[in-house]
Structure formats: C-alpha cells, structure tokens
C-alpha cells in the first residue's frame, strides 16, 4: 500500500461573490508524478497557492503527509518543497546565500545537505555568483535546489518548464522522473503544455473553470478516446451500416467510430456481409491535446 502524500478534499475558494474554485478533490501517492492540466485561468495557480498555504481556502481541507495545512502549517510545510510560478530568488545575493537563506528557515539543514542539492542540480561552478547574473535555466535549477533542501516527500512545481529552452525542458523532465522513481517523491506539476504532461506524468487531472473535469492515468484517459478510422467502399453504404451500430463521423474518405475491443469484429463482419469492401481499419490514440480540447470544450473564452 503506497502512502498518500497529498490529499485534497472538497476544496473551495470564493473571492467576493465569484467562486473561483468550486470543489476540488484528489490524492497523490508516493512516487507518483501528477499532472494538473488546464487552460489559463482555470484555477491551477489558485489551487496550488492554496496547497502551499499562500491562500486560505474558503472551505475544504488539504493534508500533506497527514498534516492539515491550516492547522499544522509548519509540520505540513516540512514535508513539502515548492516553486510557485517562476523561482523568484534574491538577485542581489549569490546562489549559495540564497540557499543559506532558505536553509536557515528549515530545521536540520546543514552545509552538507546544501552541497548535495547544489550537486544534484549541477550548479557547482556558478553557485557563488550573484543570482542576477544567472540565466533563466540556472535560476530554475537554483529554485529546484531550494525546494529540495528539506528532502521533501512532496514536491509542488507550478509551470516548471516555463521559459526554458527545449533542451532545458527535456532535462527538467528527466530530473522530475528521476526524483519520483528513485527517491519515491510525489511530484505535482501544473502546466498548460499538454505534450509535457503526457510525457511526464503518471496521472492527470484536467481542470476547467475551477472544477476537475477528469482524473485518470494518462493511458486510460487516452484509451477511452480511442478511435478507429475505416476506409471502405462504397463509403455511403459502409456509413449506413456502421451508423446502425454506433456513432460515426465522416472525415473525407474515412469513417471514424469509437474503438471497442469486442464489437469491432462484429461491425467488420456486417460490413463484409453487405458486400462493403474494407480497405483499411486504423486504430488511433488521440494526443492529449485533442483529448483536452474535447474535454474542455475547446473554448479559450474567459469566464
């Protein structure tokens, strides 16, 4: 039985009369990378800020490793490391002094641990330079180093690849996977970049308008949306037959139906019986992107 590192129950936030977060529930297990996916303005950042104690929820509860974030704030925070949006550090201090600053705010973090995290993110060469001379990628690394100081069980990263170049994004992805697989850390990642989440996460929650629309593993989310592309002749007759079994969409010379392990052979047999020639049956997984647009209705409109 894997340990639950983060559990969120019926989390709500109201600002004035507007309910921004309308009741969010989810759980994170040890060693799991969990993606928080949604269009801009969906409530990702507000939710994350509630998780780390920056914003007080109107109602609902958040437990980190069993500690309530509101009642046992310090105990909960000891188990957690985070970067909220860009890693904003003190530009007038050196990287090392920044780490020292945050190490002093944690119990039992000594110089050995500081050296360890510096090595972990590969910043040894520049750690004593002022942060204002760092590139964005280096700041991101220092941000991660800072979040890792207390060897957290739960790492919360808000848009971790924001502003990184493709090489940096890949590096970050490998780094996060390593933390989850080798150190058994739970990682919560928010992003509006689907490709990133698809490659990085074990499970995904899709959030829109302050609600979680779907939570599932990446594979099963995708598989429920699996499609078969039929190329048949004559297409008219084929469409008639298939539509008697299931919903169809016509896309130029293809008929698209849902994929169903058991039913598909029957449909195929029916087609054959009616003398419709089946040239091609193509099973396709939609990208997360299509899925996302489907689930969220594709509207980019701000509510």
């Amino acid at each position: 039985m894997k340990q639950v590192t983060l559990s969120v129950r019926d989390l709500k936030k109201r600002i004035g009369k507007r309910e921004i977060i309308k009741g969010i529930d989810f759980e994170l297990n040890e060693g799991e990378v969990f993606g928080f996916l949604g269009p801009n303005g969906a409530g990702k950042t507000t939710t994350i800020r509630m998780l780390v104690g920056l914003i007080k929820p109107t109602s609902g509860s958040i437990h980190i490793c069993g500690y309530d974030v509101r009642q046992d704030f310090t105990k909960a925070m000891k188990q957690m490391g985070c970067i909220v949006e860009n890693p904003e550090l003190y530009p007038f201090l050196s990287g090392w002094d920044n780490l020292l600053h945050f190490a002093r705010m944690l119990p039992d973090v000594d110089e050995t641990r500081m050296d360890e995290v510096v090595e972990l993110v590969g910043l040894q060469a520049r750690i004593h330079d002022k942060v204002k001379t760092y590139s964005l990628g280096m700041r991101q690394r220092l941000g991660i180093a800072q979040a890792m100081l207390n060897s957290p069980k739960l790492l919360i990263l808000d848009e971790p690849t924001n502003g990184l170049d493709p090489a940096g994004i890949r590096e970050m992805r490998q780094f996060i996977r390593k933390l989850a697989e080798e150190e058994g850390m739970s990682v919560l990642v928010s992003s509006h970049l689907l490709g990133e989440i698809q490659q990085l996460c074990d499970r995904v929650a899709i959030i829109k308008g302050g609600e979680i629309i779907k939570t599932d593993t990446v594979e099963s989310l995708l598989s429920t949306q699996e499609r078969i592309f039929w190329r048949v002749e004559p297409i008219q007759k084929g469409a008639e037959i298939l539509s008697s079994f299931t919903e169809i969409t016509l896309d130029q010379k293809y008929i698209i139906t849902a994929y169903d392990e058991l039913k598909t052979p029957e449909w195929n047999a029916a087609l054959n019986q009616a003398g419709v020639r089946v040239h091609e049956m193509n099973r396709k997984l939609p990208g997360l992107e299509e899925l996302f647009l489907q689930v969220t209705g594709g509207g980019a409109g701000i509510e």
């Binding site: 780390v52 104690g53 920056l54 704030f73 310090t74 105990k75 909960a76 925070m77 000891k78 957690m80 985070c82 909220v84 949006e85 860009n86 890693p87 904003e88 550090l89 003190y90 530009p91 945050f102 705010m105 944690l106 119990p107 800072q146 207390n150």
Partner: peptide, 12 residues
C-alpha cells in the same frame, strides 16, 4: 520580487 512566496511556504 515575488520572493514572498518562497518566504511564506517555509515551515515558519
């Protein structure tokens, strides 16, 4: 600077 977010998410 935005550093307030780091400051307030420590166990203090």
């Amino acid at each position: 600077q935005g550093t307030i977010k780091l400051l307030l998410t420590r166990p203090v």
